[in-house]
Amino acid sequence: MASSQDSQPFHWHYAELEDRDFQIRGRTLFFIIVLFSFVLVFTLIFVYSRWICSFHRDNSSTPSPTSHAPPQPRPEPRGLDPVTINALPITMVTRGRKSAAAAAVALESECCICLGVFEDGEKVKVLPACQHSYHSECVDRWLSAESSCPLCRASLRAESELHQIPVIVTQ
């Protein structure tokens, strides 16, 4: 008998699939409206925040040629010019005798840029602002990009301006 029930063809009628009895009432309708409202509000906030972010990003970029903003001044170069770098005093490292310049170099035993030890008879540059000493190659490379002492950040810009200002005497 079980086999006869399994072999019956499936018959359905269109009238059986109608949804006349389907109704949304009470709490179900309320929850659907609340859920739809949350999704709508969240979507609007997301779209608004994206618009605000893109608006601020566009305003913070460089001004367009048609805007009436004043031109931005060029940034001053950070390094020293080669003439000023070459004008810095060079001292020989001597461990035996103590001259005034060698005494300052003797206090420092290594170059703080490359961490190489100063050898006897080696040439080092002494910065006039702070009396710190470095290998010539190391400090020259540093001063071409920066205008301060690598160790104490004492500015060397004032010394470079003295070399660049021409003196004109008129009578």
Score class of each variant (00 low, 15 high):
G26W: 00
H56V: 08
H163M: 12
H132R: 02
K125C: 12
C152I: 06
F46C: 09
I32A: 05
R50M: 11
S3L: 10
P77F: 03
S160V: 01
D21W: 09
C138V: 01
P89D: 09
A100F: 06
Q131K: 15
C152K: 05
Q23F: 03
T84V: 03
T28H: 02
C53I: 09
S148T: 15
A87T: 05
R27F: 08
A129C: 08
R141F: 04
S99F: 01
V124S: 00
L17M: 07
C112D: 08
V105I: 05
L127M: 00
L151K: 09
S136Q: 05
S7I: 07
P63N: 08
V117D: 09
E122L: 04
F31P: 00
F36K: 11
I32S: 02
F10Q: 11
T84G: 01
I113W: 07
L35Y: 11
W142Y: 04
R97D: 10
P150N: 01
S37V: 09
D6W: 03
L143A: 00
R57A: 14
Q23N: 06
N59H: 14
F36T: 15
A102Y: 03
V139Q: 00
R95E: 12
H68S: 11
T28N: 03
E76M: 09
A104F: 12
I85P: 01
F30E: 14
L88E: 04
P150M: 02
S4I: 11
V167F: 03
A15I: 07
E108P: 02
W142A: 01
L80P: 00
E16P: 02
H13S: 15
I32K: 03
L127P: 02
H11L: 13
A154V: 08
